[in-house]
Design a binder for these strands. Structure first.
Length: 270
DNA sequence: ATTATATCCTGATCGC
DNA sequence: TGCGATCAGGATATAA
């Protein structure tokens, strides 16, 4: 499940491979994708590859007069992958949904579950959820406190809300709360200043550390060259129901909040 | 404002 | 070996 660290891993891997390349052809293999190849002019050059939350943004804007803004936006959702292959073109891959032929190499959008999205946009206003990026300098304990204020929602599902913070998903939400020693069921607005500081610190710290290890591969995630992330071995609670807590040895508990699994240690998170 | 539920979708897993 | 049921969850939509 690609969350912020996994998306950041893909973006950092793709940027040097894609920037400066020209798009020769866009092939759409999955009609479910709302993508019209005719909207992508031939030989557009890739200017920049970056991230907004969990969205991958490939900037195809043409400078000059008149300016022609254009972005290819990719959200991997559950099982999506953006795979770069060197020339010559690789044999067709299972679950291939779109292929972007470049002047050197191909970019493949592969996605077994077909939840992922790929869109061509000429305007990014309103294209993404409005939450704050937890790696941005604006993400401070005070900013987090402002966001949390008044909310009676349990903190774990609150962390998944992309209109508050962008980029967190089910794995890191549980891990962050364990690291911050906060019970997942606590109402978001009830966190003490000290808990908010811990939540802020561990959110930053965990995401940065996960990026250092190129993300978490629980089952599906692969980077732009098909490699797994290496952060899974550092997970303390996610996917470890009934296994001993790495801090206190008592069994890790799984609960369901808003239809999603939450993992925690009831003894350590009080 | 928040919660629950359904939807999308398919591979993996489980019980029989 | 196979078959159907269930689960996984990011995001959105709708109802309560």
């Amino acid at each position: 499940m690609p969350e912020l660290p996994e998306v950041e891993t893909v973006v950092r891997g793709l940027a040097p491979l894609l920037v400066g390349r020209k798009v020769r052809k866009l092939e759409v293999l999955d009609p479910k994708l709302d993508l019209h190849p005719s909207r992508l002019p031939r030989n557009r050059m890739i200017r920049r590859v970056h991230r907004h939350g969990k969205e991958i943004i490939i900037d195809l804007s043409q400078r000059g007069k008149p300016q022609k803004p254009l972005w290819l936006c990719v959200h991997l959702r559950m099982t999506g992958k953006l795979i770069w292959t060197p020339p010559p073109s690789a044999p067709p891959e299972r679950h291939l949904r779109a292929r972007i032929a470049l002047d050197r190499g191909d970019l493949l959008f592969v996605d077994a579950r077909r939840f992922g999205t790929m869109r061509l946009m000429s305007d990014l206003a309103g294209a993404f959820p409005p939450g704050l990026d937890p790696l941005a300098p604006e993400f401070t304990p005070a900013a987090l406190a402002d966001l949390l204020e008044q909310s009676i929602q349990a903190i774990k599902p609150w962390l998944l809300r992309q209109d508050r913070l962008i980029g967190l998903g089910n794995i890191y939400a549980s891990e962050i709360l364990f690291a911050a020693k906060i019970p997942p069921t606590r109402p978001a607005g009830s966190l003490t200043p000290d808990e908010i500081r811990r939540l802020h610190r561990h959110t930053r710290h965990l995401l940065e550390r996960a990026i250092k290890y190129c993300g978490t591969t629980f089952s599906d995630f692969r980077d732009e060259r098909g490699r797994s992330g290496r952060f899974r071995r550092f997970l303390k609670v996610y996917g470890r129901e009934d296994d001993p807590c790495r801090r206190c040895g008592r069994p890790v508990q799984r609960l369901v909040q808003q239809g999603r699994s939450t993992f925690c240690c009831p003894a350590c998170q009080k």
